[in-house]
Design a binder for these strands. Structure first.
Lengths: 145, 145
DNA sequence: GCTCCCGTTGACGTGCACGTCAAGTTCTGA
DNA sequence: TCAGAACTTGACGTGCACGTCAACGGGAGC
């Protein structure tokens, strides 16, 4: 376990967000610090930072709102939690259920990424068509089409 | 020229937005109706609808805000306007300037699309890695990695 | 001409994702 | 030990992209 004991300011800076954002995410139960100092200051780990970067990724790249992101991370958290108690060998039918939920969300996400990629390719095609027309214009200025 | 004389309600429905959105875009000088009825009601063309769909594309797929979108469309508009007066053969050095601006914006946009694509591929790779681990879990439940 | 839906402007409201300020506490280097 | 930076909670403010309501005007079918 990477246990750097990072302070909120450092995490914020390294992720390119504000401290307010970190406190807001905690309020929304999206990202809680792994610990606290004696006086009550938040202490984050590298794993916490990675989770924050993951949130930003889902937000910026996929355009999800924080509620959707919470649902995604929540399913993964439940699965991770389950794996901890896996060794305890408790409730096998509930295990299937939680794994199935994670798989379902994963499938849906990959589908959404594929769709987004397709749309992105469309936009790219439009841009390249425009670029060709611009090159035409720059070349001969007398053939309007 | 496709000149369907569409009313605001039909344009909104076909684009999957509200009438309020159309009026808001007009307020922001993003999309003006091509004409009006005698009484002052907005009348759109198929080209206007296409522009609206383009705005939505840039918004949803690229995540641009309306100001950025305005800048992008603005440059293209200036170029289109220029092409109209091209035949008039006025101000050749200003022509180069405007074309250069459009090319520059086009280049930057394509670069942003490429970057977005790369990030999207990263997200996809993460999701596929998770999917593999899920399949492992579903297969043998005794080998924690 | 009457109806009724669709449209108009203007103004205020809303949800999200934070920003910002206040007043106090804690942590860290000299 | 003490200055000053960084942190805490709490509350209110903000910008964007619209939603919504009120009061009124236009226009297409009967």
């Amino acid at each position: 376990m990477t246990d750097g004991a990072l302070r909120i300011g450092e995490v914020a800076t390294r992720a390119g967000v504000s401290c307010r954002t970190l406190r807001y995410y905690e309020e929304l139960r999206l990202l809680a610090p792994s610990g606290h100092s004696a006086g009550g200051a938040r202490r984050y780990t590298e794993d916490d930072l990675a989770r924050l970067l993951r949130i930003k990724e889902l937000q910026d790249v996929m355009g999800f709102d924080l509620e959707e992101i919470g649902a995604i991370l929540g399913a993964e958290d439940r699965l991770a939690e389950l794996r901890t108690e896996w060794r305890g060998g408790a409730r096998p039918e509930r295990q299937d259920e939680i794994l199935a939920e994670a798989v379902k969300i994963n499938d849906r996400l990959r589908q959404q990424v594929r769709e987004k990629r397709a749309k992105l390719d469309e936009v790219m095609a439009e841009l390249e068509a425009k670029a060709r027309r611009y090159r035409e214009l720059a070349g001969g200025s007398s053939t309007p089409g």
